[in-house]
């Protein structure tokens, strides 16, 4: 626990020294939100599309997408540590491996919270309104943190296994596109092809988007929120545990 706190402190300090980076990572979701919001405004008129305002439908999806996209970069900090001798020094110290992983992910999660709030602010400015109240927002933030943490720990694991920025980013780009589009992030599943809906059922990003959208709606289906939330928590725990094991694989290779 102490180690987790210490490592979290290290990364938070680094982030806080580069506020421009957080600001920079906001440009992308802002563009997604405003561009898609304009481009696809008409989709709500397709028969069967549930929401009446596309921007309101899109915003929770973009929150999850932002969390996913940023988590991919998580591993680059591990690679920077490996390229220097920082990772080796840490691993030769009694620091807990879980703490090394968790500390970095927690600091990432704080960025996710800030970004989620800002994406909502942009969405609000563009006209998105929700009836769900504070609980809905809290669940959305929590789900976004889980998405960021789960895929951040996967990114860290890939970093430990490949030890290359290029490989890490390549793999992540390859994975993040289907995760984004085979989901209800941009389009209501009711108007999407059947196979997309089948794929989305196994997509953790979609679980997060569904849970958030439900929780933000006027009459949430709490059982759906709970079910998808549980899937997400379980997924995060499993990949978190697997990623911590990746330290061993890394140590075997050096």
């Amino acid at each position: 626990m102490t180690h987790t706190t210490l490592i979290t402190g290290r990364w938070l300090r680094a982030q806080y020294r580069q506020p421009a980076l957080i600001a920079f990572t906001l440009v992308q979701p802002a563009i997604w939100l405003l561009l898609f919001g304009q481009l696809f405004r008409g989709v709500v008129n397709i028969p069967g599309f549930g929401d009446s305002s596309y921007i309101a439908f899109l915003t929770p999806g973009i929150v999850m997408m932002t969390a996913l996209m940023n988590s991919g970069w998580s591993g680059t900090t591990f690679i920077a540590d490996m390229e220097r001798g920082v990772m080796d020094r840490m691993l030769a110290s009694p620091v807990s491996r879980g703490g090394l992983m968790a500390g970095q992910l927690i600091s990432n999660a704080t960025t996710t919270v800030i970004q989620t709030i800002l994406v909502f602010a942009i969405g609000f400015a563009a006209g998105a309104r929700y009836d769900g109240g504070a609980g809905g927002y809290a669940i959305t933030v929590f789900a976004a943190m889980l998405v960021g943490t789960a895929f951040g720990s996967l990114s860290n694991a890939v970093a430990l296994l490949t030890r290359q920025d290029e490989a890490l980013i390549g793999i992540f780009q390859f994975v993040s596109l289907p995760l984004t589009f085979m989901s209800s992030i941009m389009i209501d599943p009711r108007v999407a092809p059947h196979w997309v809906n089948v794929a989305a059922r196994f997509n953790p990003v979609d679980w997060a988007a569904l849970a958030a959208r439900q929780a933000l709606s006027a009459a949430p289906d709490w059982s759906s929120v709970a079910r998808h939330g549980l899937y997400l928590v379980a997924f995060t725990l499993i990949v978190g545990w697997l990623s911590t094991r990746a330290f061993r694989t890394y140590q075997r290779s050096i």
Binding site: Q18, E83, R84, G85, V86, D88, R89, A92, S93, P94
Partner: peptide, 16 residues
């Protein structure tokens, strides 16, 4: 691990 100090070949400080 508690008994040793390790100075790796590559610089081991956090540059930031």
């Amino acid at each position: 691990r508690r008994s040793i100090g390790y100075v790796p070949q590559k610089s081991s400080s956090d540059p930031l």
